[in-house]
Amino acid sequence: MLHIAFASTDEVHVNTHFGAAERFVIYDVSPGVAELVGVGEFASAVMKGENKDKKLPVGTVYTPGPEMAAKPGELDKPPEDKVVAKLDFLKDCAAVYAASIGTSSIKRLMAAGIQPVIVDNNHEIVDLLNEVSLALSCGGLSWVDKAKARFLAGGKSPDRFDRMEREGWHGSDDGHALHHLMTSEDDLV
């Protein structure tokens, strides 16, 4: 199971810049199912810099890779307050999706082992959850493959996702949002 976070004002769409996000929703995602497990609220932050209003075209997804990793000593200066609290809240997440993420925050997220993913504004969260579910089952997203490998290296059973699916795992019935997701390309039909 991977924890995935989304910068969202409405818990339905990714519609906020990472640094300016006042709310993150976190889902536990396994093949075929995602459960809302947390919502973090943050103080309003004023955005600055030349890319503060930058948005990706509709349908675009950008996943920063190793080329964005921090150089030695680059993160030695204290990070901005607005990012520290968010990094602490997201520390157990494999990835965070946002409508935009500044270079400094990308480097801090990657240094914390959290994959930043930038998507077009108002991208539906359930579509992204389906994408992650499908990647957990079939592969296809390199960051999901890496996160799954780290998860398994942490002592988790390698067949855990398959076993959960066979057992018909549906998560808790405590009122949290639960989405049944795709696990194969046959589900697209």
Rank of each mutant, 00 (worst) to 15 (best):
L2E: 10
S100V: 07
A70H: 05
A43D: 14
H123D: 09
A70D: 08
L181D: 03
I125L: 02
S184M: 13
D81M: 12
L134I: 09
D173I: 00
G59R: 10
V61L: 10
V83N: 03
P31K: 05
G73E: 05
G38W: 07
S105K: 01
V14G: 04
L152S: 00
K71R: 13
P64K: 02
V189E: 14
D174E: 09
A43V: 08
V46S: 10
T16P: 00
G113I: 07
K91R: 15
N130R: 12
C138N: 13
G49T: 08
S184K: 09
E80I: 02
V46R: 06
L87I: 15
D10G: 11
V46Y: 01
H3C: 14
N51D: 13
G154Q: 03
K82G: 02
C93W: 06
A147C: 06
P31T: 14
V37Y: 06
L134A: 10
L36K: 11
A43F: 07
L188D: 05
K146G: 03
L129G: 02
E167P: 03
L178N: 13
G168F: 08
D28H: 05
E50K: 11
V58K: 14
A98T: 09
G32Y: 07
T16R: 15
I114P: 01
V58Y: 12
A94R: 02
G102W: 11
S172W: 07
G113S: 04
N51K: 12
R23V: 03
D28P: 01
I26F: 03
C93I: 07
D81K: 15
F24T: 10
G40T: 09
L152K: 02
D187G: 03
A21M: 05
A177R: 10
H13K: 13
S157D: 15
L2M: 15
V12T: 13
V14W: 01
M47V: 08
A149V: 04
A21K: 07
L75Q: 07
K91D: 15
